[in-house]
Amino acid sequence: MNYRVRLEVFEGPLDLLLYLVEEAQLDIHEVSLVRVTDQFLEYLAATHDVEQASRFLVVAAQLMAIKARSLLPLPQAPSPREQEDPGPGLARRLAEYRQVRRQADLLATLWARESFLYPAPDRTEGAVQAPPVRGTAAALARAMAWVLGRAEVAVSVPQVPISVTERLAALRDALEGRGRFVFQEVMGRGRGCVVGSFLALLELWRTGEAEVRQEEPFGAIQVWREEGA
C-alpha cells in the first residue's frame, strides 16, 4: 500500500498503523479516524485509485472495530488471549471446527445406519400437506389472476420523519425550562425518536450547551446546563 497517512502521532502506510495499534504500540484513542478517513477521501478524489479504496475499507473497518471495542463498557474482562494474540485464537478455532467436523461424521454414520430401518420416522406430522394436484397450468394461471384481481394493492409504509433539529429544539426547551433533566424522560418514544434525541444530545454536549453524565451503563443520563453558558 503506497498510500500514506499523516497524523500527529504517526506517519506512514495505513496497514502499519493498524499493526501498531494491534500490537498496542500505539494508543487507538490517539488516532483520529475522522482525520484518517478525510485524508483518504482527498487522496481518492485526486487519484481515483479504486484498488486502494477497497484495501482502505478493510483496514479502516478493523481500526474502527478496535476503537469501538475500546470505547464500549465491557460487562467483564474479555479473555485477553482472544484480543491480543490472534495466533493461538485461530489455532483454537481451527481445532474446534475440526472437532465439529468429526462429530458431524459420527452423526452421519448414525444417520446412515438408521436410514435402513423401517418404518422411517413420520415426517408428515405437522408439515403442510400438499394438496391433490388435479388441474392444469392454465387453470392455475386463471385462479391466480382471479386472486390478484381481488387483492387490494394498496401497500403503504408509513414513515414518521424525525428531525434531529426538532429533537434538538425539544432538548433545548427542557434545558431552558428546567435547567436539569434526565435524558430518558425527554427522549420520546420509538426507536427513530430515541436515536434522533440521542444525536441531539451529543450535539448539545459538543457545543458545550449542556453537561452530560451517566453514572453506570444503561443508567439514567443526567443533562444540565453548563455553568456560565
Binding site: V100, A108, R123
Partner: peptide, 17 residues
C-alpha cells in the same frame, strides 16, 4: 417405502454443533 430425505453436509455440521 418412504425414505427420509438426506441431510446436507452443512446441515449435518450445524446439527453436530
Amino acid at each position: 417405502l418412504a425414505r427420509r430425505a438426506a441431510l446436507s453436509r452443512a446441515a449435518m455440521e450445524t446439527l453436530a454443533v
